[in-house]
């Protein structure tokens, strides 16, 4: 059920035009500069060259996009599950929250550059280390968003439910969980933008295939055009995932589109 966006009569397309224009002009300036300066494509390839490389190497790129997508989805699914499960546990056990939360914060201070090779060393060149790294990078924003979201529940609503004889579990399901949803989606949108990048980085450190490997090989053979081709694909992936979460968010938080509330 698609609801028309209220209060934005222009719709999403019209609002996208300025962004598309500025992006287009940036590429245009880049193209013109490369042509006029005669700079070597080994230094700086023109956007047109990157595009033609994408077309030329489409089979190779596609074959390497699949493993990256697989790592992204598996890692994200893992982190989503863990974040949700943990957040519920932490909400019901405040003492555990105080004990564990610092550990999660520390997990976010680990530099990916250092931790990724170790994870690959421990778990090999298969899917596992990528999944773990994607999960490590993406789970924290969602966990924090959920925990904060539960805490932001209107105490009046909780008192009301308690007056109706609701148990802690019923209060969680009826009030705390739905209250946390706007927060959760804010965290989700941050996480999803990290996910593809994390997968590519994990591949870069050690993998048999994937966009990270494309980038690594292209760099080693002095092919910046191919590097950028892989970058374009990765950006597109992130944009698509971001759009998907935005669509899901709009469906789940439909109540926020109405009236003047919230």
């Amino acid at each position: 059920m698609v609801q028309p966006l209220p209060r934005h009569p222009g719709g999403g397309l019209a609002r996208g035009i300025p962004a598309a224009l500025s992006l287009l002009s940036a590429f245009l300036i880049w193209e013109v500069y490369v042509r006029l300066s005669g700079i070597s494509p080994l230094m700086l390839p023109a956007p047109s060259r990157v595009l033609s490389q994408i077309v030329l190497n489409r089979t190779m790129l596609w074959d390497n996009t699949i493993p990256t997508l697989r790592a992204t989805f598996a890692g994200f699914a893992l982190s989503l599950t863990v974040a949700f499960g943990l957040s519920i546990m932490l909400d019901f056990m405040p003492r555990v929250r105080r004990a564990l939360f610092p550990i999660f914060v520390v997990s976010q201070t680990l530099p990916l550059v250092a931790i990724a090779p170790l994870v690959v060393l421990w778990f090999g060149f298969d899917l596992t280390p990528k999944v773990l790294l994607v999960a490590l990078v993406t789970f924290f924003p969602m966990l924090v968003a959920l925990v904060d979201g539960y805490a932001a529940t209107d105490p009046e609503i909780e008192n009301l439910l308690r007056s109706m004889g609701a148990t802690r579990r019923v209060i969680f399901r009826r009030a705390r969980l739905p209250s946390a949803m706007p927060y959760f989606f804010a965290g989700l949108r941050i996480s999803i933008t990290y996910a593809v990048v994390a997968a590519i980085f994990a591949e870069y450190v050690g993998a048999r295939a994937g966009l990270g490997i494309v980038i690594l090989n292209a760099k080693n053979s002095f092919r910046p055009d191919l590097v950028l081709a892989a970058v374009v694909i990765s950006s597109l992936l992130t944009l698509i995932l971001f759009t998907c979460t935005a669509l899901i968010q709009r469906a789940v938080l439909r109540w926020r589109d109405h009236g003047d509330g919230a």
């Binding site: 009046e156 609503i157 109706m164 009826r174 109540w255 926020r256 919230a262």
Partner: peptide, 26 residues
């Protein structure tokens, strides 16, 4: 049956689901 100070309607539930809330919890 308790009616709190602000209406404390659940913003994510439609009116009908808000009205049945107390009965459902009970």
């Amino acid at each position: 049956a308790f009616m709190p100070q602000r209406d404390a309607l659940l913003p994510w539930c439609r009116v009908l689901d808000n009205l049945t809330l107390g009965l459902e919890v009970r």
